[in-house]
Design a protein around this nucleic acid. Sequence first.
DNA 1: GCCAACGTTGGC
DNA 2: GCCAACGTTGGC
Length: 152
Amino acid sequence: MSYWLFKSEPETFNINDLAKKPNKTEHWDGVRNYQARNFIRDDIKKGDQGFFYHSSCKVPGIAGIFEIVKSGYPDYTAWDPTSDHFDPTCSSDDPRWFMVDVRFVKKFDRIFTLDEIKNNPVLEKMAVARRGNRLSITPVTEHEWKTILKLA
DNA sequence: GCCAACGTTGGC
DNA sequence: GCCAACGTTGGC
């Protein structure tokens, strides 16, 4: 089993939104970056777990945990002209973008902040702590995962 | 609202 | 295939 960190802007979609979905499950669509796409298509498997990270907000940090309930499949919003994530250059017989389904597991009692990540010697090397990092999906090591669970 | 970082686009 | 311009992300 692998661990991941998914970023989302809480004004758009946050951990409470996920918890309120039917079956507490939602597809994670709209990833339009090749590196993140490759993780979704090739590496993220059913049963993996992820941190739900809130970005571009007052207190950026990890809000809780989800699990992967369906591994990568074509992100159909790329073919939907009414979607914000529509990609007009993407043909329907050759899926370019992928998504996974995630299910709410738990919400932390508090936000485990980016500041705490940066100031922890175990966590400071996490991609999310690097200045200028824009990748919305990044791998998390087991050591990092357990360290955060202990402290959150 | 500013600006650094960096992925993408497009001219050559 | 190089690289400058541009657009977006995201912390501050």
